[in-house]
């Protein structure tokens, strides 16, 4: 990376944040649904027993471009609540300079250290590397918390669908199995979902429900092409408010144990707009602000002598005020 120049993307931080952070944090892989879905409302009540609640979240962000590749940074956070007290462990930021030449090496190094997969995997497209690296760090942190926690509720950001590049089936299955073996229950909250029931967005179904409750959605196919659903799908409306979320609970555990885990979450964590505070904090701690992006750029420039060069925005040059959207 030394003596090379890099160029921060002209589209600005907000665009990075939306285009890159959201890609793997909020969205869930699409499962093809059919019309035989059924819905069942399950009222729940808080279970006040001393159960630790832990959450994991990771952010990745593109810092800029160099003549040979791109600069990105990833950061992860684990937040847990135990004995009425929130604690966190934050990893990073870790900046990377990824080129066509080193992307495979970096990607495999990450995979190897995460899940001891020896075979070389195909490295993704350069533009997707930050997201993939973020996913790998997330899986690594999820593995760590699954191995160290016992009889706890573990919150993930996203769903329990597997079979995509970010969520290989064997990796997600392995994580769920480790958790089960240590009596942990994984609850995966998705802020957005593409799943629909009778044409309505799944999360809209919670609007008329009386909280706290779960809406159990039955009838999803366990597999749709290469994509597997490893969890039972619910709509979680846990507090008053306009928000409800898609909640995936490990299929391999009993329905009662899954619901009990949600009740323990209600009894042990603060929930605002149906969203657990532990998971919100994990998101807050991991996400990048514009200042941090500038700080990382400063580090890269200072430590590696990089010179920032502004690359012209071709769209702006060609189309002037009509040249909107990202470059390309």
């Amino acid at each position: 990376m030394e003596d090379e120049s890099f160029q921060p993307n002209e589209s600005g931080f907000k665009q990075y944040a939306t285009s890159h952070q959201q890609n793997f944090e909020g969205a869930t892989p699409i499962l093809r649904t059919h019309d035989l879905l059924t819905i069942k409302s399950i009222p729940i009540k808080p279970l006040f027993c001393d159960t630790p609640v832990a959450a994991v979240d990771v952010s990745s962000i593109k810092i800029g471009e160099t003549e040979t590749g791109l600069l990105c940074a990833i950061r992860g956070a684990i937040v847990w609540k135990h004995d009425s007290r929130y604690s966190y462990l934050r990893f990073g930021p870790f900046p990377f300079h990824i080129t066509e030449e080193n992307k495979k090496e970096i990607y495999n190094l990450f995979k190897h250290h995460s899940f001891e997969i020896s075979e070389d995997a195909n490295a993704p497209n350069l533009a997707n590397v930050p997201i993939r690296m973020g996913s790998l760090l997330e899986r690594w942190l999820q593995l760590g918390i699954s191995c160290s926690a016992h009889d706890s509720v573990i919150l993930w950001d996203g769903s329990l669908t597997a079979g995509t590049a970010d969520s290989p089936l064997n990796v997600v299955s392995q994580l769920l199995e480790i958790s089960r073996n240590r009596l942990n229950t994984i609850l995966a909250f998705s802020k957005t979902t593409n799943l629909r029931l009778l044409g309505h967005k799944l999360t809209d179904l919670g609007e008329k429900s009386w909280p706290p409750c779960l809406l159990q959605i039955n009838g999803f196919p366990p597999q749709s092409g290469p994509v597997f659903s490893l969890g039972n799908v619910y709509v979680a409306k846990l507090t008053q408010g306009i928000c409800s979320f898609r909640l995936d609970i490990d299929k391999e555990i009993s329905l009662e144990r899954g619901i009990e885990a949600v009740q323990k979450l209600l009894g042990n964590d603060l929930l605002i707009q149906s969203y657990p505070e532990t998971l919100r904090l994990a998101h807050t701690f991991s996400t990048f602000t514009a200042t941090e992006v500038i700080g990382i750029q400063h580090l890269i420039a200072q430590q590696y002598g990089l010179r920032i060069i502004a690359r012209p925005n071709i769209r702006r040059l060609l189309f002037g005020p009509f040249g909107k959207g990202s470059e390309g």
Binding site: S87, Y88, L89, G92, P93, T291, E292, G295, I296, L299
Partner: peptide
């Protein structure tokens, strides 16, 4: 209300500060 620590081996936080 939240206690914890940062694993920041590259000392990026100093640049952010």
């Amino acid at each position: 209300c939240v206690y914890g620590e940062d694993f920041d081996p590259l000392k990026v936080s100093s640049h952010i500060n």
